[in-house]
Write a protein that binds this DNA or RNA. Structure first.
Lengths: 339, 339
DNA sequence: CTTGCTTTTGATATCGATAACATTTATACA
DNA sequence: TGTATAAATGTTATCGATATCAAAAGCAAG
């Protein structure tokens, strides 16, 4: 069987090249003092054997793992994908790899995932949101590495934060609705116990309504993960059935808004003439749908970029330079056709 | 600084619990012979110290890494997300973690990624597609672990394959167009040198056209990654400009079809009355758009599931049971409104 | 060709866990 | 109660690379 054959080790390469394994170790990494002739000889031997460095041994020996971990709720979500992409891009220069895990919006799954990741001794860890199980929180606090919570501004941060107030961000949409003269406003959300960002957007709804003396009854909560569009369709159906005079509805994400808008069309309603629908997240599809989706841009990529920069700073040797614990990004309203 | 504080080791736990570190090692994994009293004592000590196992040492010592690697072209793609999700789900039972990397549809990036992943000594590796650099191919061949190519059926597979013929799959759509009596048919694709699956779908177009004596001129290739919708819009504009009498167009993915359909609407055309548009991949959004997108379902989740099953089989001790090298899935046409 | 310096290479200990084997303790049953 | 057997625990060597320190080789200038 193939995997019975033992893979060549550094010692094998050293033997073939007629040097010590220490010299091989040096030759295989850049900017180390090895003569050109030796380095070439070793490279040749390594190629001949098909040698691939065993980072497990390497990391173990040197004490550093060379990677950072990041957890996101869902792998199939344009917003988080943007964050992860910017995060990775920001770290390639530093020879830091990114280990990605997703939680499916479950704190229990997050706890399990964080533990698995910490066992691999990352040099830093980025998590999405500030909602964790007690044990997960403890694990992160005791991890001995920089921890960054993102996409949220937790009341009691574990360590560092790169995020924004989902509550304030969603208020932007409601103020927009109200400025247009609407008073019968609704909200379609998900499972507030599982998704703190969604919950905060709902709380923004409640806040805005209360501030203007409006009712915050017009609400539908749907089971979102792993799908979003069908729940958006169900949500708007249920709202229109119970409160047919609803004038404007904000959805917890553009994907939900997409389901809601297309369902309105199927019900024979015109968006935005008959009803305004707002989204959240500035997904690519929102710009192309007819009508295009009015949404909140939360700078998903910026979050990843800032998190990467923070990590580089925190891991640099002269990290006595105290960096700000909390980095805030500024969500903005993107006014398009749907609202 | 936090990360100067050394984390507790197994020896620390052993000391505190008054046992040997070997006993700690045993106590921390299930179904090993440790007395209940000792196990509890050790668990208590571990909790007290906030001990987290160092899998780097563990893997290194035991020789097995406990994870499998998978590479996909893009993290933000519903199809690949489905594959990865099914793949992960199929492996949790086996205590195998999944390490995910994405290539951005670049073979060079793939080569780099595969090398990085192999350095971590996974127990198996899954790659998307059969297009690799020579060196990447060599790395995989010499890796000593099971290799599974997916989403494609390469002419010369490296090892195992779970996939389907993109060429035949796309022909389903063109046969559908032709059965409806259309003769002026087009195709919107991406960069064929980077995406072999897209290229094969284009080749299916050429095949079908040739078979029925039709022109295969009506083609637009767009730069897709990392966006798909705007290219779809550009693509349909360019096709309609050059060949205004085009009756039906297939797009290389549902996301591109989305851009194309919505652009048709903006140009004042009705889909499907004025033009038929087909997609590929059966993405969630295709079912909800008005008109819903006629597409090819390629069973993305099934591919992940089969790959996971294959790996479990290949890694099991009694793997002299020779499994089929190639597993084929059967794409099907989903007839909806757009074509 | 020798002194003093830099560059290159080598020897050895080590990282933290586990495999393999050895030993002790508990348990069963004659 | 003693012996056979199983269960629990301990000891030692080891995985593959690298840090650290030591030695050798190369090189410039006198």
């Amino acid at each position: 069987m193939r995997n019975k054959t033992k893979l060549p080790t550094m010692a094998d390469v050293a033997n073939l090249a007629g040097v010590s394994s220490m010299t091989v170790s040096r030759a295989l990494k850049p900017d180390t003092s090895v003569s050109k002739a030796t380095r070439e000889k070793i490279q040749k031997a390594a190629d001949e054997l098909g040698y691939v460095l065993d980072t497990r041994a390497s990391e173990f020996s040197s004490g550093k793992s060379g990677f950072v971990a990041i957890t996101i709720p869902s792998i199939n979500n344009g917003n988080f994908a943007d964050t992860v992409k910017a995060f990775s891009d920001g770290l390639v220069e530093q020879d830091l790899q990114v280990l990605l895990g997703y939680t499916n919006y479950h704190v229990d799954r997050e706890e399990q995932l964080v533990e698995q990741l910490l066992k691999k001794r990352p040099e830093a860890i980025v998590v999405t949101g500030g909602m964790h199980t007690d044990r997960c929180r403890l694990l992160l606090e005791n991890s001995g590495i920089p921890v960054i919570e993102t996409w949220d501004i937790p009341e009691k941060p574990i360590d560092h934060v790169v995020g924004f107030s989902n509550l304030q961000a969603s208020e932007l949409m409601f103020e927009h609705f109200i400025a247009q003269g609407h008073t019968k406003i609704g909200f379609i959300g998900g499972d507030n116990s599982r998704d703190s960002r969604g919950r905060d957007r709902y709380l923004g709804f409640c806040n805005s309504m209360e501030k203007h003396g409006l009712s915050s009854d017009r609400v539908s909560f749907q089971e979102l993960a792993p799908f979003s569009m069908e729940p958006g369709a169900s949500g708007i159906r249920s709202i229109m059935k119970e409160w047919p005079d609803t004038q404007a509805v904000m959805c917890v994400s553009d994907l939900v808004a997409f389901g809601a808008i297309t369902e309105c069309q199927r019900m024979g309603m015109n968006v935005p003439d008959d009803i305004k629908i707002g989204g959240f997240g500035a997904y690519e599809l929102g710009a192309f749908l007819n009508p295009s989706i009015t949404t909140i841009d939360v700078c998903a990529a910026q979050i990843g970029k800032s998190a990467a920069e923070k990590i580089i700073e925190l891991l640099s040797v002269d990290s006595d330079v105290k960096s700000e614990k909390i980095v805030k990004t500024e969500p903005t309203l993107i006014k398009r056709q749907s609202a």
